[in-house]
């Protein structure tokens, strides 16, 4: 599943560590989500979407 986490993060000038701290996860987890190696839980997906003021569907492309 593709996602827009990296694009949204870099647009805001955040590092992976910054985003991880904001979400309560490690930098490695942010990296794994961005590269598609780890599919986050529903609570974390919602937290990511809310952090970027987006919907889950806008951040995570279920059709990709």
């Amino acid at each position: 599943m593709k996602n827009a986490v990296r694009a949204l993060r870099t647009t805001r000038g955040l590092s992976q560590a910054d985003l991880g701290t904001a979400l309560g996860v490690s930098r490695q987890t942010v990296n794994s989500i961005e590269t598609g190696r780890y599919l986050p839980s529903l609570p974390l997906a919602i937290a990511i979407a809310r952090f970027f003021d987006q919907t889950v569907e806008e951040v995570f492309d279920v059709d990709a």
Binding site: V25, S26, R27, Q28, T29
Partner: peptide, 15 residues
């Protein structure tokens, strides 16, 4: 280590 920290505090869902 982020992994070791995650294993200790259980705050990271992936770890």
């Amino acid at each position: 280590s982020e992994t070791a920290k995650g294993l200790l505090d259980h705050r990271d869902e992936r770890i």
